[in-house]
Design a protein around this nucleic acid. Structure first.
Length: 389
RNA sequence: GGGCAGUUGGCGGAGUGGUCAAUCGCAACAGACUGUAAAUCUGUCGGGCAACGCCCUACGGAGGUUCGAAUCCUUCACUGCCCA
């Protein structure tokens, strides 16, 4: 993996280019999440067409099923899943945290029970790397200790210490030389601990650095504050990845603070549950107000779902639980995210990022006014809003 | 024509004297979701209000018994099954 980056001015946002054996990724970039292989609802051809060149898979899930050895025998993740682009695997540290009730954490590693069959497993930094090497992604993540917030400072401090310890063991246990390994900064919502975590990891010299342990219940200001404390500690020449984030606003603010990579389940999960992203805010497609709405989700959207389908039809598909609803909604949302990142990169290149940022906030909520005008107009004719029926 | 069973809120279906505006499921409506145990989960769901409490209308229609009826009796209507 090679990374080149240019900072256009004194501000933090930056343009980069991440070269992997499976393609070049222009940054800042968003990675869709395909936990156990696919991004739910879409296939690799969709992802390519949507403009994605990098996606995330999860080592924890693939280790449990079908097993990292099966994936290795089937030629590794790229061949197994049919995804020709680049892949980043998460180590499973976050899953340990989210399955905290089932696990015991020591400096040695994590023991936990499978959420699938209750079987007991023990994962160490070394086995996590072994799994990720077997899976064969282009970028692999260190095995970290992510704590649930809010947490006592001592617990967070201990997680930072352990994360550094594990990061070093991950680094030292690598056998393959063709994968990039990223360290993960922890530290909860404590600026000092974030700085300490970042410095300790930088000393270990990874190919990239992630900010983990955020978007776990803290406020937006806390999240942004942690980025402001962490990013300046990271080497400018290496990629910075904000894990598990997030909403478009979070991506915008992350880029404004120097983040290059993001991943989040939001476009796919929200697509499945009917929350569609647009330049003017969200469209909850299940709402009755869309029963007779002939407009596309977003008239300004360039995706092929908006080119062909009405809100009325998408509402209907959702309502009757057709699987096509999940697919089309996910495609639209992924397009929005892909396009949003592309527009941010263009704005950075053109030196208009601050204008882009201001414009984003101004546009949010515009739909309500615009839609109300149209609906009032229609209410005068035969086409009343669904609420009247 | 005779016999039996039944008629409950948008639908299905509990409830067989008071604690019933009525269990539950579906539908409907609204909301949540940020390194995916998620095509999941939560709330509301007769009407009204100065709403964590009160009032009104309600368990096919009408009448009756009772302090009190969705629940018991009479009758009418309708539905299903069985026998002619």
């Amino acid at each position: 993996m090679e990374f080149s980056v240019e900072q256009t001015g004194r501000s933090e946002e930056r343009l980069g280019s991440l070269s992997t054996a499976h393609g070049v990724i222009e940054t800042p970039a968003f990675m869709p999440v395909g936990t156990s292989g696919p991004v739910k609802g879409v296939d690799p051809q969709d992802l390519e067409r949507l403009g994605f060149r990098l996606m995330l898979n999860n080592a924890y899930h693939l280790y449990l099923r079908p097993g990292h050895k099966v994936v290795a025998e089937m030629g590794g993740l790229h061949r197994f899943t049919g995804w020709p682009g680049a892949i980043l695997t998460d180590s499973g540290g976050f899953q340990m945290f989210s399955l905290a009730k089932l696990c015991k954490v020591t400096d040695d590693g994590v023991s936990f029970q499978s959420h699938l069959d209750g079987s007991t497993h023990f994962i160490t930094p070394e086995t996590a790397i072994e799994i990720e090497e077997a899976l064969g992604a282009d970028i692999i993540m260190a095995f970290d200790h992510c704590v649930a917030l809010p947490a006592d400072r001592e617990i967070v401090r201990d997680a930072v210490r352990r994360t550094t310890l594990w990061a070093k063991r991950c680094r030292d246990s690598r056998r393959r030389g063709d994968q990039a390994l990223f360290g993960i900064v922890q530290g909860g919502v404590d600026r000092d601990l974030r700085r300490i975590s970042a410095r300790e990891l930088v000393d270990l010299d990874f190919e990239g650095y992630a900010v983990g342990g955020l978007s776990v219940g803290e406020s937006k200001d806390e999240m942004y504050g942690m980025l402001e404390a962490t990013v300046p500690e990271l080497p400018a020449a290496k990629p910075r990845y904000l894990m598990g984030v997030g909403m478009p606003e979070n991506l915008l603010e992350g880029v404004a603070r120097g983040v290059d990579l993001f991943d989040c389940v939001v476009p796919s999960r929200h697509g499945r549950t009917g929350w569609l992203f647009t330049g003017f805010g969200r469209v909850l497609i299940k709402q009755a107000r869309y029963v007779r709405d002939e407009r596309p989700i977003d008239p300004a959207c360039g995706c092929w779902v908006c080119a062909r389908y009405s809100r009325a039809y998408l509402h209907h598909l959702y309502n009757v639980k057709e699987m096509l609803a999940s697919r089309l909604n996910t495609i639209h949302n992924l397009w929005y995210f892909s396009d949003f990142m592309r527009r941010m990169r263009e704005a950075i290149a053109g030196g208009t990022f601050q204008e882009f940022r201001t414009g984003f906030y101004q546009a949010q909520g515009v739909e309500s006014a615009e839609t109300r005008a149209i609906e009032e107009q229609q209410a005068g004719g035969h086409c009343r809003s669904a609420g009247d029926n």
